[in-house]
């Protein structure tokens, strides 16, 4: 393993806050969060419901913009891009995975996977070829012409993962990818994500409530009420999760340093 410090962080989140105005109230979804994540790592974000995990994912993938602070991905400050540029950047650099798979029901597996390639200049034959390759990576080469409704939840999520990697992005952002799956399928998905990191060098950030995810990730961040837990608080949160998972499965090496980095 390369020493962590030697690598340029792929993601830098600098004093980011995100507030939503809801009627007269203001919801502080994220409050002054700073952290960095090195390239080629698989990290989890955990925390209670409403703690700001999805908000953070949206900011890193450029679907949303911070109220304050800056998000940099591979040196690119997302705040400098306008809406169309951001969409283009996202299409090229980020693969997205959702809790409810979010496949397009009227397209078969291959067309679903090929969808992001419509935003490239590739010819149709090449798009389909790449989609088939991606489906092979997730082990669904037999299901290319199946429509989402004819696939199981686990299979649908694997199609969604194929769609997320078909553009060969640097970064994969997954918001509760196993949230709608049973234990067996959830483990298969986590295993697949880890393989994407190990075999293809992808950086993966994932929101999860699943304590078993700790066995697969390099590091877990903990959010609570829009704040990033650090130091003692983070260690306590880690231990709580390990306890829930049934024992010390997470190595101490992955523990957060002050300021939060993975």
């Amino acid at each position: 393993m390369e020493p962590v410090a030697a690598r340029e962080p792929l993601i830098q989140i600098l004093s980011v806050s995100r507030r939503y105005v809801r009627g007269v109230d203001e919801v502080h979804a994220l409050e002054n969060v700073s952290l960095s994540i090195a390239a080629g790592r698989f990290v989890a974000f955990m925390g209670p419901s409403g703690s700001g995990k999805s908000t953070l994912m949206n900011l890193v993938s450029g679907i949303d913009r911070p109220s304050e602070g800056e998000v940099l991905v591979a040196g690119q400050s997302l705040g400098e891009l306008d809406e169309d540029e951001l969409a283009e950047w996202r299409a090229r650099h980020v693969g997205l995975i959702f809790q409810f798979f979010n496949l397009i029901p009227v397209l078969d597996a291959r067309d679903n996977v090929a969808l992001p390639l419509l935003l490239t200049d590739l010819a149709k034959s090449e798009r389909l070829r790449r989609a088939e390759t991606a489906l092979r990576v997730v082990g669904l080469e037999e299901r290319t012409d199946h429509y989402p409704r004819t696939l199981s939840g686990g299979e649908q999520q694997r199609v969604a993962i194929a769609r997320a990697i078909v553009t060969d992005p640097d970064l994969i952002v997954a918001d509760e990818p196993t949230g709608d799956l049973d234990a067996r399928n959830a483990e298969a998905i986590l295993e697949l994500l880890r393989r994407l990191k190990n075999d293809f060098g992808k950086t993966i950030i994932m929101v999860t409530h699943d304590p078993r995810a700790l066995r697969f990730v390099d590091h877990a961040f903990h959010l609570d009420k829009g704040l990033l837990l650090e130091g003692e608080d983070a260690e306590r949160a880690d231990r709580a999760v390990q306890l829930a998972a049934g024992g010390g499965l997470l190595s101490a090496a992955g523990a957060a340093r002050p300021g939060g980095a993975a």
């Binding site: 993938s61 679907i63 809406e83 169309d84 969409a87 283009e88 996202r90 299409a91 090229r92 997205l96 959702f98 979010n102 397009i104 969808l115 992001p116 419509l118 935003l119 769609r163």
Partner: peptide, 9 residues
């Protein structure tokens, strides 16, 4: 989803 994947308005 389509917008998130990068399709424009």
């Amino acid at each position: 989803t389509l917008r998130a994947l990068g399709f424009s308005k």
